[in-house]
Design a protein around this nucleic acid. Sequence first.
DNA 1: GTCTATACCACGATAGAC
DNA 2: GTCTATCGTGGTATAGAC
Lengths: 206, 206
Amino acid sequence: MITSIVPDHQEADSRRRIMDVAAELFLERGVDGGSLRQIAELAGMKAGSIYYHFASKNDLLVAIFERGIAVMVDAFDEATATGAELSAHQRLAAHVRAHLGALYENGPYTAAHVTAFRTAPPAVREAVVPSRDRYEAMWTTLIAELVAADALDAEATDGVHRLLLFGAMNTSVEWFDLERGTLDALARAITQQFWSGLALNPQEAA
Amino acid sequence: MITSIVPDHQEADSRRRIMDVAAELFLERGVDGGSLRQIAELAGMKAGSIYYHFASKNDLLVAIFERGIAVMVDAFDEATATGAELSAHQRLAAHVRAHLGALYENGPYTAAHVTAFRTAPPAVREAVVPSRDRYEAMWTTLIAELVAADALDAEATDGVHRLLLFGAMNTSVEWFDLERGTLDALARAITQQFWSGLALNPQEAA
DNA sequence: GTCTATACCACGATAGAC
DNA sequence: GTCTATCGTGGTATAGAC
């Protein structure tokens, strides 16, 4: 095992370890349910030491939520970045899959953000709102493009259907288990429900 | 104004008032964010007095969640009870509207259950699981009937699509505002998305 | 049925040694 | 960078007067 030559990475490592265990705890027990004492214990230190890395619990929350949003944004960008020519349906499917990947395949940050945000202190919520809005705008743009390409009903542009899609994707953290199903299958189910619904004879919808 | 003849309803009234303000508080701030001191103040009494009506905060939580589930169950039953002959699409629409009614038109109980359940203590969650399961079973049966009537894709019977529908309906408490939109319109949007999707040319879905 | 008073504990946060 | 020790606050819950 080779020891790094640069001075020492303890600070960055510890900061990250705190965030990792804290995000997991907030995801499971909520903002108020996860205490700094528990976080410290899981991170292998004492509660007071956390304050070397974060000025307050609120600061730690903001850092975690911002990271959760950054993970979503990165996933969105990567889904777009495939050089291939994609159909409208394929584009939507790729972004749904990417969002689910952010929720389940890149640490607990996005899932913690989605579940714990609503009970965070107002100051924390306000701090991350701009980043949240930026991610939502990416989806608004995507859906507008699909509508403009004559792929989707213009009704989708009013935002409600985007929010319903978010609801379906995000609430999956309450019941989806990676060990009992694949993300690809879940993404297909969500995309299908959004795209063409489940009716055998859709025209029945008077 | 006539005063009741029976001894006095103070106990039942106070108990209900505590539950009302507590449900609202749990809905807004989460289980740990709503303290018995705040609840007592909103209910017009002191914290210690709550213990005359509930043995513990957990007991209060269970009572609130159970009531939230009962409100959903009642709404479901009433949606079914219309004597009229309904098409499959109309039946689904009626039940979606009823579920939204439980979330928004019958007090904060169902909304509190939907948002605060996940961070409640394990003992509380376990206590209400049977009631939750009973409500979910009602939906499972409904969807199975729609599938059997050749109205829905058999895929809907695996449960995933029911959970996605729940996610779309329940997450609306995060963004839907009764003063800026009607429940009827929201119910139509959700039903349409579930039933026939948003694609103009669904067959594109390869 | 509600009050006052209080026990006991866990919380977030700070100060200063090492 | 982490520790120990501690402060002040606010949490749930209980006892007993009224």
